[in-house]
Structures are given as C-alpha cells and as structure tokens.
Design a protein around this nucleic acid. Structure first.
Lengths: 412, 412
DNA sequence: AGTTTGTTTGTGAATTTTCACAAATGAAAA
DNA sequence: TTTTCATTTGTGAAAATTCACAAACAAACT
C-alpha cells in the first residue's frame, strides 16, 4: 500500500476560503463548502466554468431547495451521511446540476458540513478521493466553532419545543414571537408524532430522515417526539398531507426495525393536525394516547398510527374508567364466560370473532375453522343465553365496546 | 223510584263489631270487615257456616296471601277500587273461597277498607246492594282514625324512601334497622322504576296497581318513583323477574296512556337491580338516566325501559361531554354534511340508515326507498369521501357512535 | 349546442347468507 | 347400560349480497 502524500501539510492554518482554493487547485475544478444546513461557507475563486446549481448556491448563499429535494430523493445525502468516503454524483440536468463529487465533513458521528467538487475541467477519479478525505479532515476545525453555535441554537429550539409540548405557553402571539427570535419558521399546520423503540439510538438511526425533512424533534427516554409540518393545508386535500406523514413513518419504522431486531418493539403514533400552536399539547397527548392504545391492542391497531384512526379505541380507556367509577360490571359477558367455563365452549371467542368480522358469517366461520352451521348455531345460542339481538346495531355496537373494554382487564 | 229505607238509622253510633253483626243480620249471612291493607277489623259472630277463606282470614287476622293474589289476578280488586257499587264474586273453590259480595269503604277517592258478605244462608241479590252501600257509608267514620294512623305511617315510609333515594344513609345495617321500626320488609333484591307523565294524577291512576304489588312509592313532580322488589333472585332466573317488571310497566303505561290522551308523554325507565340498599341511589340514577335517554332518542329506544338495555346510549352523554372537554370536532361527519349541502345529496342519512340496519343493504335500501345499486353506489361514495372502510367493525362502530353523539346537538 | 360529471336504475351471474331438517358425536344423567 | 342433551356437521333450496357493466338522467361547464 503506497503512502499517500499529505496534501494539506502547509495549509493547516489557512482559513476556510483559502482551503477551498487549495482543494480547487489540487483537483483543478470548482469547489464549494457548505455547512450541515447547506448554507454556503466558502468557494474556490478560480475558473469560470460553473453550472447553474453552483451559481445559484453562491448567489443565494445556500443550496437551492429543489436541488436539495432531488438529492435527498436520489439518496445522495443518505450516502453522504452514512459513509466517510466521497460520493460521485452523475449529472442531473433537469435541476442544472453538473457531474460532481461530494464528501461529508464530520466529527465523530456529527456531520458538520460538505465539500463539493464540480467536474468540469477534468474528471475526478478514485485517485482524487484521498485529497477530498484529507480536505474534509482539515476542514473540521474551521467548522467546529460554527457547529458549536448551531448546536446551542438547536438546543434552545429543543427546549422551546418541550415548553410547547408541556403547554407552558398560553398565548399564540408569544409563541410566534419566540419562534422568530429562535429563527424558526413554524409550519401553518402541524402535528406531533412519537416513535418509540425499546433500546435503539433513535436520533442516530433516523438522522438522515430528520435532516431531510428538517424536523424539529426531542428525545424523551425511548421516545422521539417530532413536530411535523403539513405545509399547505389546501381545502379538502388534508388526506394528501396525512399520507406524507404515513410515508415518513413507513420510512422511519422500516429503518428502525432493520436495526432493532431483538425486541422488535418499534411503535409510532401521531396526534391530529392543528394550526394554533397553543394546541400542540393536544396533539402531543393524542399521540401519546395512540401509542398507549397500540400497546394495549397491538393486533387490532396494526398499521394504524393516527389518533384519528383509532375508532372506538379512542374512547376505551375513558369508558373503562367511567364504568369503574360507576361500579358497573358487565353481566352479559360474565354470563357467557360462565357458560363457556361450565360447558367447555368458546362462545365468547365466537362472539368476538363475529363482531370483529363486522357480522360476516363467512369470514367468522373461516377464522374460527368451524362449519358455517356451527357458527349459526352458536350465534343463536349466544342470543338465547345473554338475551341479545345480534341484528340490532345498538346491541352489536354495545357488545363490541363491552368486549373491548373487558379486554383491558386482561380478563380474557 | 222507590225511597230506600235507612237501614242503619239506629246504629249510627254503634262500634264496628256491632255494625258487622247488624249487616250480617240484615243479609242473613256472615260478614267480614277489612282495612285497605286487608287486615281484619271486624266480623259478624252469628252463623257457623263459613268457608275456608273466611276462616283463615279470622284466624290469621288478615286475608291469606293466595286469596289476595287470585282476586287481584281476576280483577276483583280493580273493580272494587274503581266503583262504588258492590261486586258479586263467584265461588273460587281452588282457594277455598265461597260465593260472596264485597264493597269498598271509601272516602272521596281513598279506599279505607272493604266489607265482605259471604253467600251461604241465602243468596244476596241486587236488592241487597243498597244495604251494603249504606253499610259502607256508615263504616267510614269507624275507619277514619285507623286510616289516619296508616297515612302517617305511609308518610314516614315515603320519607324514608326519599332518604334512600338521595343516599342519605351509608350503612346497610342502619337502613335495615330503620326499615324494621317502620314495619317494612325490604325485598332481598330490588330496583328503582320511574314513570313520568305530563299532567296526569299518576298516583291516582296507578292506585290499583300500586296496591296490588304493595309497592313503596313517592311522587316527585310529574314523576312517580317506585321501589320494585324482585322477590327471589334464584340463579340465572333474573330474566323472569325483569319480565315481571316489564309486565308491570306494560300495565301501568297502558292504563296511563288511556287517560293522558293529550300530550301522550308517558315514559318510563328503570335502573339495574341491586341487593344492598346503599345501592338504591345507583338504581335511581340509572332510572333517571334511562328516562333522559328515552327523551333524547324516543324512536331509537321505543319499547326499552331498562338501563341495562340502553346499549351504546348508556355511554352517549358521557362521551358527548368528554368530546366537548377535549374540544373534539368530528371532521368526518362534517365532511359528509358539507358534501350533502354542496351536491344536494343525502349521504349522511344514507350512512345512518345503513348503520342502523346493522349493515344489511336490503333493509337499508328498503327504508330509504332506493334501488339497491343506488345504495351500493352511495356507500362506495361515502367510503371514498370520508376515507372509511365500512367493512371494518371498529370504524363502523365508531361512526355509529359519532353519528348518535352528533344527534345530541340537534345538528342533524 | 355538446361535453363532462355525478347520480340513479337496470341486468345478470357468481357468491354468500339464511333457514329448515336430519344425522352423527360425545359427555353427562338416569 | 340406555337415555338425554348440547353440539357439530351435512344437504338443499330460497333469499340476499356482491360485482361488473351499461344505459338513462340532470346539472354544470365549455
């Protein structure tokens, strides 16, 4: 293995702009240096041949949004965030992006920024990768200070989110003002989403996704709490927005479940969407509620994350508590349970399966592995024993509720 | 019209026993006088020919229970209580009751007692009726004092019931003791039933029924509150007892509705059955709740009176209140309502009918007077618009609940 | 005017549900 | 042991449901 030369020996103390020029000279191509938030930090001054993406970046002092979106979509950033080596990116003419190479500037697992090298004057080969690796290493010290400031800001933003989650602020105006001083732009519509994983480094694994969507988040024990913005809530198109959340969750859970093979306890829930930021407490509580229900009824709520999708489960805990306060005990179900015990039957399970199948005898018999006439007999029996009319929606719904409430005791 | 002689002219100041003898002599038959509670007050002393019923009555100083039950069943008391004339009763050998004639002793609408004349020595004809009428009139003054005492006792019992209803007593032992001092025997199992009629003299119309079942009751405005005993709650035979309550209600409501033709607002509700008398508050509250629900959803709960039969309606008020506290507004239903307004459709009604029919398309289409394919189209539309899966019981039940909750606002 | 869109109704075939009746099974009671 | 009872399964026919496809219609839009 040949010993690579130390390209930046004599530039250890050069400032960041000088460094960009040096890299540019070594690679004979235009260089751009950005921080983790894609704000322009430095760029090489030689050479006029520049594509539209670089031009816009320099003029706007930030990488244009559409370029970022595209690169996230193509998985470029995912690569950059997860590996130490330079990433070679083919040209993407639709967004005015020429062929280039990029590398992340990182300290430990933190990404401080990126170095971009355009390929215009000459191709950048694998041999040049070491130059970029060294350049990234040298750039670290220049970015650390900036990073410190950024971290402190991030920290203050997280504290602010906690305040919002706990409902410390009562006035919308005060919230907006504080958000301004923290240079946060609050989405017009938002919701709170919680992802919980047993013993996983949640923020670590989700980092690329969090960065991609520029989410505000805090970690609380084994939970990560996310403020997700629903940019434009046009008319009846809220469905589309919710589907974006579901997409995000699918991505996140997929990624996490790959990592957390052991307990595989990865669950997520989110509250309803609100516009006023005094309602953030509500959305948070709703997300927590959804999570709680998903733990209590995992099968019943598989694939469901939104509080608005919980159906009757939304009421269950409350109703349970109410029944207890009233000293109500369900005689009908107890009667069935007793009958089952006395006669070694399974009428209660039969009833639950029947109700879960929304009264479809076919589906019910199938799930229970019994003849359809057996089912019909059992249902008739149930109607006789607990004196109920299963064709009556009121009674059906009531029984359904009662059954699910009873399950909360683990009595089943 | 011949002027009837005044048979009791010279006995105006005779005591009650003497009176019985006089009547006996006039009719040449054995006489028994009872108070309203069928306790023996006096009996004629001549003549040995006496049937088993009279003999038991005199020996036990009260009319035997089985005789009373039979006479109530045959409607004899109903007649006695509602008319001033003597009632001629055929022999009922199975209970040892010979042929006899009876008349109620009444002051105004209050029944103070009864005079019974057995037919053994000679038949008692219509001509003798006037003798009994006059005898009943003369007996009034002898029974008034007794009646006063009885009324005071009744009054104290009613006050006691009120105390129980309002939960003033916390100890079962104290309650039992007080019941003893008031000479009340509390049924082992009981429930509270309330009948409400707009402007009717409830206790008046129900008097025969109340007497028959010896119920404890109080009147509260337009409501009459009844403590109904369920004598022997053997094993799983509670159904039979409840059916007795239903029978009583059917009788009562039938009678009342005949009288209250105007507003026809006669409703009834009853709570669950309890054994401990500290629970009487619960049963009372449940009865009130049932009544309230029946007012809010008259059609939905037609023919239903028991709190235990309310189904989901039992939860509705609580859920409504809870939703309001949470500031929850139902977007799904609102969306449908909006669609209906925009397109002059009736999807909301369609949905409700469908759910009420427990998902039977046939019944639904019939009730809506539409083609079954129209219904199928509408349901598909509903599923699209509010993004719901009507085959899913959770969603179905949730929608059902939401619909009924929404109806509480009168928003429909 | 024609076109589009959402709604209603019709037809027909495959499938499911409902119901009545009968036979087989197994466990408990006589 | 037989008898009884509750349960399961089978058969078959009528009724109801589901689904695809098409025609008719009215209101809104171009």
């Amino acid at each position: 293995m040949p010993v690579e030369p130390n390209y930046f020996q004599q530039y250890q103390h050069a400032d960041i702009d000088e460094l960009a020029d040096v890299i540019g000279e070594l690679l004979q191509n235009p260089i751009t240096v950005e921080d983790a938030d894609h704000k322009l930090i430095a760029y090489s001054s030689h050479g006029e041949s520049t594509d539209e993406a670089r031009w816009s970046t320099i003029m706007g002092r930030r990488v244009p949004e559409k370029v970022l979106t595209r690169l996230w979509k193509d998985g470029v950033f995912q690569e950059l965030l997860t590996q130490d080596d330079p990433v070679h990116i083919p040209a993407k003419d639709e967004i005015g992006l020429g062929k280039r190479v990029a590398i992340a500037i990182r300290r430990g697992s933190d990404v401080l920024g990126y170095i971009w090298a355009q390929e215009v004057n000459r191709p950048i080969t694998r041999e040049d990768d070491e130059i970029l690796r060294q350049a990234a290493r040298v750039a670290v010290s220049r970015l650390i200070q900036r990073q410190g400031k950024r971290k402190a800001e991030e920290q203050r933003r997280k504290e602010f989110l906690w305040e919002l989650l706990l409902g410390n602020h009562s006035s919308e105006a005060v919230i907006r003002q504080k958000a301004d001083t923290l240079q946060m732009q609050l989405p017009t519509s938002y919701l709170i989403c919680i992802i919980e994983a047993a013993g996983a480094r949640l923020d670590q694994y989700l980092y690329p996704l969090l960065m991609r969507d520029k989410l505000l988040w805090v970690v609380d024990g084994s939970q990560i709490i996310l403020l997700i913005g629903l940019s434009e809530a046009k008319k009846d198109k809220s469905d589309v927005l919710i589907r974006k959340v579901e997409q995000f969750l699918a991505d996140s859970l997929g990624k996490l479940e790959a990592h957390v093979t052991e307990g595989r306890q990865v669950i997520a829930g989110y509250g309803r969407d609100y516009k006023s930021y005094t309602d953030i407490v509500k959305s948070y509580r709703e997300a927590l509620h959804a999570l709680k229900i998903k733990k209590l009824f995992p099968q019943e709520n598989e694939g469901i994350h939104g509080y608005h999708e919980l159906g009757i489960y939304r009421y269950l805990l409350q109703l349970k508590q109410w029944e207890e306060e009233q000293g109500y005990q369900n005689e009908r179900l107890e009667k069935l349970r007793q009958y089952d015990r006395d006669n070694q039957t399974t009428l209660l399970t039969t009833l639950e399966t029947f109700l879960d199948a929304a009264g479809k005898v076919n589906k019910t018999a199938e799930r229970l592995h019994i003849h359809i006439n057996t089912l019909s007999y059992r249902l008739r029996r149930i109607e006789e024993i607990i004196r109920v009319d299963l064709d009556n929606m009121n009674q059906r719904a009531a029984l359904y509720l009662e059954l699910k409430i009873a399950k909360l005791d683990g009595e089943q």
